[in-house]
């Protein structure tokens, strides 16, 4: 026998034509939540892979030479945008995971660590297959105002008075190269004193149309001539290119600072 409450509820259902919400609405909501979780994890992983790419190839080994101090180098090269995006997407993944149907069953710390570990793991995988590089370069070319690692380097290394020069190679000879810097200025770069010349030539670091960064000094007598001590590719070499970047020891560092490349003492 129906109780008073059930009778009144059934009456209301019939009178007001109350009907259960469609099953698809609930399915769509669940799917949307998981799409959001998946999207946040994927974008978080993409940001992480770009972050790993920039951090790995920032040029830590040349930090004191290029920026004077490790901290200044860190502050200037830290990829703030990628750090911020990685945090935002991991945060969205964490928040939406909690809001999924059974998300409440897991401890917050487990969900947080899960989101972070998943994004980092996928980020490392993405970096390993070159996604980090593609994203960083692609965004640098596609979005005005965003500086990719390569663009940032070009700017940071365009300080010839401080012993750093960057530009696109226009001409290559046995003893010199000609490069065009960020301001369109042409430089003749003397390569006779370059460290590990066979390595730099063998690996065709310097080729027409490639971009390079150079440690060296301006010639006192010819202001458009630059003496190169170390030549590095502007863009970090890919693993399969087999390029070994020269190591700069304290003796070499000193010789660059004192504007006299002395490769003989480096070996």
């Amino acid at each position: 026998m129906n109780t008073k409450l059930s009778q009144s509820i059934l009456k209301k259902i019939n009178q007001d034509d109350v009907a259960p919400k469609s099953r698809w609405r609930f399915i769509a909501r669940r799917v949307a939540m998981w799409v959001l979780v998946g999207g946040a994890v994927i974008f978080g992983a993409l940001a992480t892979s770009a972050l790993i790419y920039v951090l790995t190839h920032a040029g830590w080994q040349y930090a004191s030479l290029s920026h004077g101090s490790f901290w200044r180098f860190t502050l200037e090269t830290l990829p703030y945008l990628w750090v911020l995006l990685a945090i935002i997407f991991v945060g969205i993944a964490f928040y939406t995971l909690q809001k999924t149907e059974h998300g409440y069953r897991y401890q917050i710390i487990s969900i947080m660590l899960g989101s972070i570990i998943l994004s980092i793991a996928l980020g490392v995988a993405g970096y390993a297959v070159g996604i980090g590089r593609t994203i960083d370069n692609g965004l640098g070319k596609g979005i005005g105002g965003f500086e990719s690692l390569v663009e940032q380097r070009m700017e940071q290394w365009s300080q010839p008075e401080q012993g750093r020069l960057a530009g696109d190679v226009r001409k290559v000879t046995d003893v010199s190269i000609r490069i065009k810097d960020i301001d369109g200025f042409l430089w003749d770069v003397d390569t006779r004193q370059v460290v590990e010349p066979e390595n730099f030539l063998r690996n065709t670091l310097v080729d027409r149309n490639s971009s390079v960064r150079i440690f060296g000094y301006i010639d006192d007598a010819f202001p458009n001539t630059f003496h190169a001590c170390v030549i590095l590719p502007l863009e970090p070499p890919r693993r399969d290119e087999g390029i070994r970047l020269p190591k700069i020891n304290p003796v070499m560092q000193q010789s660059i600072v004192t504007q006299s490349c002395r490769p003989a003492q480096i070996r």
Binding site: S8, P20, S22, R25, F26, H102
Partner: peptide, 22 residues
């Protein structure tokens, strides 16, 4: 309480398709 009860059962009815069978 009676009003709340009515609202709760109506809400349950409207959301019946969202009942999580787990």
């Amino acid at each position: 309480i009676q009003d709340l009860l009515q609202d709760i059962f109506l809400k349950a009815y409207v959301n019946l398709n969202g009942f999580d069978t787990s």
